[in-house]
């Protein structure tokens, strides 16, 4: 792992009781990188966010794997040392801004709490000054006045900005944003994503964007990871992956997007069936039951990620078709020789 890798997840397994929700996941985030994790509900993407922060809650645990933040493996850290990393090197922006702020504390108190947990020497007025600075950075007007207000006096978009301010209070290396725009209307979504862009551009913070919204990913991310049934089934640079999706699941996801200019008389494409239950996963590729291209080999072994195409940038997919295509490509190339 080079110094420019800020977060590296290696072969992560997360289980609730006997059920594995995340089944061997690798992820690498470079400094200042904007990485997307895309998947349907139930694909394990929110569990991934909580696991990386060590906040799985009752019954959940990391059963195997490493989560390295700036070269420290935090998956095995004791509680106290984990608290020292959370909110300092690594922080979270949560899904629902309406319920993510404590309703009975002022915005100022909640931002100061994030600051003084890791910077104990700061005086109250220094904390306030820093809080004003943070609110300004995320685009909240009249920050000094708003510090004394309560969450219910803020709109949804403004609350999400406050949550981002809390997340960046200690200049973390990585911010994990779990569906940060899902609860917001479209114009506010764009403004909030602009704030995230600013974090990367001005502060050099890396952002992991977890979402089901392919449109937001296409706009924002440098790299995309497609998640299905607790694993990453395809990963690559955003442009490359959107223009040449290799995994049938990614292809189906992109085909089901209602893009402007499409033939409105034709019905919108959709993926038949539902994501598999992780408690009773069938053998073989978990997408096989819904896959139009599935054949016999798909039901025997689960394919690993394999490189797609010949362009650099690390585009790979976990599908037997990729292997076959490449073998075909290889034989073509050897025939050319």
């Amino acid at each position: 792992m080079t110094i420019d890798t800020v977060l590296e997840v290696t072969d992560l397994h997360v289980a609730y009781g006997q059920t594995e929700i995340v089944r061997g996941l690798d992820l690498r985030i470079g400094r200042g990188e904007k990485v997307g994790v895309v998947g349907e509900s139930g694909s394990g993407k929110s569990t991934l966010a909580l696991a990386v922060l060590g906040l799985l809650g009752r019954g959940g645990r990391i059963s195997a794997g490493r989560v390295s933040v700036l070269s420290t493996d935090i998956a095995r850290l004791p509680q106290r040392r984990l608290d020292a990393v959370r909110g300092k090197d690594l922080s979270l922006v949560f899904q629902d801004p309406l319920t993510s702020l404590d309703p009975v504390k002022t915005i100022g108190a909640q931002i100061r709490e994030a600051i003084r947990t890791h910077q104990r020497r700061l005086t109250r007025s220094q904390q306030d000054a820093r809080a004003v600075e943070l609110l300004t950075a995320v685009g909240v007007a009249e920050p000094a006045h708003r510090l004394g207000q309560y969450p219910h006096e803020f709109s949804g978009g403004m609350r999400q900005r406050v949550l981002i301010a809390i997340a960046i209070a200690n200049n973390p290396a990585v911010v994990i944003a779990d569906e940060p725009t899902t609860a917001l209307d479209v114009t506010t979504q764009a403004q909030v994503m602009e704030v995230f862009d600013g974090l990367v551009r001005d502060l050099g913070i890396s952002v992991v964007l977890i979402t089901h919204d392919l449109g937001v990913v296409a706009e924002f991310c440098d790299r995309v990871n497609v998640m299905y049934a607790g694993r990453i089934v395809e990963t690559g640079p955003t442009g490359e992956l959107f223009s040449h999706p290799a995994h049938p699941y990614t292809q189906a996801l992109l085909a089901s997007l209602p893009l402007p200019g499409r033939d409105r008389s034709a019905p919108l494409r959709w993926i038949p069936g539902a994501p598999p239950s992780l408690a009773t996963l069938p053998p073989g590729c978990p997408y096989a039951p819904r896959c139009a291209a599935a054949h016999e080999t798909c039901r025997t072994g689960e394919p690993a990620l394999a490189t797609v195409g010949t362009r650099p940038g690390g585009h790979s997919a976990a599908c037997v078709l990729v292997d076959e295509n490449r073998q075909a490509l290889d034989t073509e190339e050897s025939n050319d020789d």
């Binding site: 949560f94 629902d96 702020l101 709490e113 947990t117 949550l163 809390i166």
Partner: peptide, 20 residues
């Protein structure tokens, strides 16, 4: 959710419990 957010700031479980 707000409790999870407080924990994600690095506040200890007991302090989170008492304060929030």
């Amino acid at each position: 959710p707000y409790t999870v957010v407080v924990r994600s700031k690095g506040v200890s479980p007991w302090l989170t419990h008492i304060r929030h």
